[in-house]
């Protein structure tokens, strides 16, 4: 029932008035960056602190890491090619060389997959954040109401699961 619990938690988050769509979308965006980039990189620590410091949803970040981790794995060769392209850009060579000769090298920026996935996820995040925000808002406006009024929703209300649903509804 682990998958079902997560699903229920996700529904709870989406249905909760305690978490704004922006908080949820922010958490998902940070999770996306962390998921697409290789794990245990130096920037993960920074993003983790960002997650702790900023009032974004932690669970959505974890969800984003899991979902985009799978996507990142599938797109690994693309990130490798993109990263190699970025690291071989002539006009960036001097900058890279300076980074390479400093402690910044500890970020492993010179790794093709890390560079490719990190830049791609950073570029995607301003695009994906409004999309996540829009989708969450649309969900709350249309899907949540439709769900409550639906036969399934009525049926679930009568069952013990419905009480759980009520619980997650907040």
């Amino acid at each position: 029932m682990f998958g079902f619990d997560i699903f229920i938690k996700l529904l709870k988050l989406l249905n909760s008035d305690k978490h704004s769509p922006a908080q949820l979308a922010g958490g998902l965006s940070i999770g996306m960056i962390m998921g697409l980039t290789p794990w245990f990189s130096a920037h993960h620590l920074i993003l983790f602190f960002v997650l702790l410091l900023f009032n974004v949803n932690f669970s959505m970040a974890l969800l984003g890491m899991g979902v985009f981790g799978i996507i990142g794995y599938l797109f690994d060769p693309v990130f490798h090619d993109f990263g190699f392209y970025l690291l071989k850009l002539d006009f960036m060579k001097e900058t890279y060389t300076q980074w390479y000769n400093s402690a910044f090298i500890l970020t492993r920026f010179n790794n093709t997959v890390l560079m490719g996935s990190f830049v791609a996820s950073i570029l995607l995040s301003p695009i994906m954040f409004p999309i996540f925000l829009f989708l969450i808002k649309r969900y709350r406006k249309h899907v949540l109401k439709w769900f409550k009024d639906s036969f399934l929703g009525e049926l679930l209300k009568e069952s013990s699961t419905l009480s759980l649903y009520d619980k997650v509804e907040g």
Partner: peptide
């Protein structure tokens, strides 16, 4: 390269 490992690119070192 191995998935998730990538390739480390070297640059001229000062």
């Amino acid at each position: 390269p191995e998935r998730g490992k990538g390739q480390n690119i070297r640059f001229k070192s000062f």
